[in-house]
């Protein structure tokens, strides 16, 4: 009986996905509901969650530029933060989506060894965030909507990055995004690695590809801290639940962007078509909303995230140490 119910849910879920899943975030509520019901009957195993992590990091997965050249027309890449450096781990530029000029941001990983080193494995320096901020400010001035593609293991943890203000750059990039009055659509297309990811993901619509991951810490990092060995990364991933379905159920993302059967790496063109459709439909939903209202709703969206309770127990449990002369 339970098995039958599960099959029925899976069937409905797959039909939802096959209609493009994303026709705006409008059906995401329905999807979330189905997903939650499905999870009641079959919570994914640790291995299944780990598979998402591996797919999100698949070396043949399309990266930001692969999507940009397939989705946007007349793309012009812009370089440099106008202050100190050019960070190749962050792509910024202008392109057209269905005729409309869009400001595009996104982290870029490298394809071969040389490229990976040059792109610093998609780990952004503060200069990269400042470049993104410069382009977002320009977008605001010219009323260009912003598309942000997130794919980073995290912001770069190095001496120079700290000296150049990594923490402050991530904070200020988010602050700027909370001030923009143009539509912002973000999509996690691979690894949504912690602060490095949220720095460019404070958006009106936050999407996530089916096999992407979005997490506060890498499973390896979490395992090293809580299990005291990086070997327990599968367990850590299962505990962190960084997969799209869980992230959607927690209300952190608005919708899941489907990938071709087997994952985005099996068919880049199809993956790009599905992503492009999702970006376009989200933009359509947002384009009618006045700028001030857009910003108000964007802030309210993030303001509402979190799960907590009000305790009825007496709060005065103060155990302040009383001085005990020795």
């Amino acid at each position: 009986m339970a098995r039958e119910a599960e099959l029925h849910l899976r069937d409905r879920l797959s039909r939802l996905k096959s209609i493009g899943l994303l026709r705006g975030a409008s059906i995401s509520g329905e999807l979330a509901r189905l997903q939650r019901q499905l999870e009641k009957t079959s919570e994914p195993t640790d291995q299944e969650i780990w598979q998402h992590v591996e797919l999100a990091r698949h070396p043949d997965r399309p990266y930001t530029l692969d999507y940009v050249e397939r989705i946007f027309d007349d793309f012009v890449e812009l370089h440099g933060d106008r202050a100190r450096a050019e960070d190749p781990a962050m792509i910024t530029g202008l392109g057209r989506l269905h005729g409309r000029t869009i400001a595009v941001l996104g982290q870029q990983k490298g394809r071969d060894t040389h490229d990976r080193i040059r792109r610093n494995y998609g780990m952004t320096y503060p200069e990269g965030y400042r470049k993104a901020m410069r382009v977002m400010e320009m977008a605001e001035r010219h009323r260009f909507p912003v598309v942000s593609l997130v794919d980073t293991p995290g912001a770069y943890p190095g001496v120079a990055a700290e000296q150049h203000g990594q923490g402050g750059a991530i904070a200020r990039s988010q602050a700027l995004m909370s001030r923009l009055t143009v539509p912002i659509v973000a999509c996690v297309i691979g690894e949504g690695g912690s602060g490095g990811a949220i720095a460019i993901a404070l958006a009106d619509r936050v999407l996530m590809q089916e096999n992407a991951m979005y997490s506060v810490i890498s499973p390896e990092g979490c395992a090293a801290i809580l299990w005291r060995t990086g070997e327990e990364r599968v367990k850590a991933a299962a505990a962190l639940k960084p997969d799209a379905a869980h992230t959607l159920a927690l209300g952190v993302i608005d919708a899941i962007v489907p990938e071709p059967e087997g994952g985005a790496h099996t068919n880049w063109d199809e993956a790009a078509r599905l992503l492009g459709e999702a970006l376009q439909s989200s933009m359509e939903d947002l384009s009618a909303i006045p700028g001030d209202e857009l910003r108000r709703r964007r802030r309210a969206r993030f303001r509402s995230l979190g799960v907590y309770a009000s305790s009825t127990v007496s709060t005065d449990l103060s155990t302040e140490e009383t001085p005990t002369p020795k």
């Binding site: 904070a171 602050a175 602060g195 979005y214 997490s215 506060v216 993030f302 995230l305």
Partner: peptide, 23 residues
């Protein structure tokens, strides 16, 4: 930093608090 036992929701406290400061 963020409390990893709350997973992605703890990461979301970054944009949440940033929005509050901006307000």
């Amino acid at each position: 930093g963020a409390r990893m036992q709350e997973g992605i929701l703890s990461l979301m406290q970054l944009p949440k608090t940033v929005c509050a400061v901006e307000d």
